[in-house]
Design a protein around this nucleic acid. Structure first.
Lengths: 215, 215
DNA sequence: GTCTATAATACGATAGAC
DNA sequence: GTCTATCGTATTATAGAC
């Protein structure tokens, strides 16, 4: 009764030999998928190595330990999201527009990195956010909180708790991808991961959120 | 680098000897917490046994295998939630009121069973909903979908996709508990699991949802 | 930089005593 | 109904060759 051996989504391109950066990235990518599914303790180094097309020895060569690899995996999305949000220049837009853009961007990001949401939940539940705390995730929350506060100050949003509403908004965006494998069984008629369906999810989310916070 | 050995929340009451039903329940309770954290493959039978105050042999005596225990664990909340929702007699109330009651009940249920949300996500990501499919979870979705459809028909909700909105509502209710261990680090000043704070979460969620779907 | 081989431990499951 | 002892296998991590 081991683990399901279903095909990994990892790209599996023929690996360049003796290219340190490429190898490192391939390990990180494979590890991200494995850690997202199984968490730190549940992940198998052998599975990560296989997904990356290398041997387990490489993991220890580049990342010292399973834990070191885990920390590197958690760090990547935190930095990437921060950079992504920064480039949006959200301050330039009125609150409603900024909120719309941020939600659109967040869902697009999740669609492009469907594993990363679960990485976050695994970390919370298996490690009590010990490694999460080390990253700069707080800053990513701040973008959303700031928009909500600005919206209230400018009188276009109703009085809300910016912190709780931020959590609610993230929940709206997240669940679709995190629970996809369960949800798909309830609606076998829908192609939930098709661009069209994700677009519908995005629009419905934006409409719900905007209507929900608007004065 | 093993798993964190933090204290289990399991009650650890002195176990009755030779009480089949009691032992079975203790194993189920301990297994629920362990499977929620680590999923089917990641869970350790030894940890479950220890949490239940028995030996691993008991797991195999009562549930035949780790997988059998897992299926039993997944089944329990599906049945329990269905019974809970049924008793609410949601059809008796106007859509807005019914939605309010359901959300209140759902969050209260999660607060009482903080592990169960993750159980669901682990199942989706580790087993692609294979065991989820066997339960009658679809029926629980149906309560919410029905309220939303009724609200549109009666002209008090705006035109929405009932399926997607159901997912969004579940996301709003869920994230708070599923990601609690991460979130708490971003707001060390708050007691997120205190009744007062959960009540605020509940009210904020209800306000967001009602404002979001209302015409 | 990458691999093979292996040491040391952890884990799932069962047999048999009580 | 419950426990102890144990078998066989899986897994992390490292040493050493190439």
């Amino acid at each position: 009764m081991g683990r399901s051996t279903q095909s990994k989504l990892s790209s599996k391109k023929p690996r360049q030999v003796r290219d340190a950066e490429a190898t490192k990235k391939q390990i990180l990518d494979a590890a991200e998928a494995e850690f997202a599914r199984y968490g730190l303790s549940g992940a198998r180094t052998e599975a990560i190595a296989k997904g990356a097309g290398v041997t387990t020895a490489m993991i220890y060569y580049y990342f010292e330990s399973k834990e070191g690899l885990y920390q590197a995996v958690l760090q990547r999305p935190a930095v990437e999201m921060h950079e992504g949000f920064e480039q949006l220049n959200l301050d330039q837009f009125p609150p409603e527009e900024a909120l719309k853009i941020l939600v659109k961007e967040a869902i697009a990001y999740e669609a492009a990195h469907p594993y990363r949401g679960m990485l976050w939940f695994q970390e919370a539940n298996q490690n009590q956010g010990k490694y999460f705390k080390l990253g700069n995730w707080q800053e990513n929350f701040a973008y959303l909180i700031k928009i909500l506060e600005r919206g209230m100050a400018e009188g276009c949003f109703r009085p809300i708790d910016p912190f709780l509403t931020t959590l609610h908004i993230i929940g709206i965006c997240n669940l679709y991808f995190n629970a996809y494998e369960n949800i798909k069984h309830t609606r076998p008629d829908l192609q939930l991961l098709s661009p069209e369906m994700i677009e519908q999810h995005t629009q419905a989310a934006i409409n719900l959120i905007l209507a929900g916070v608007r004065l």
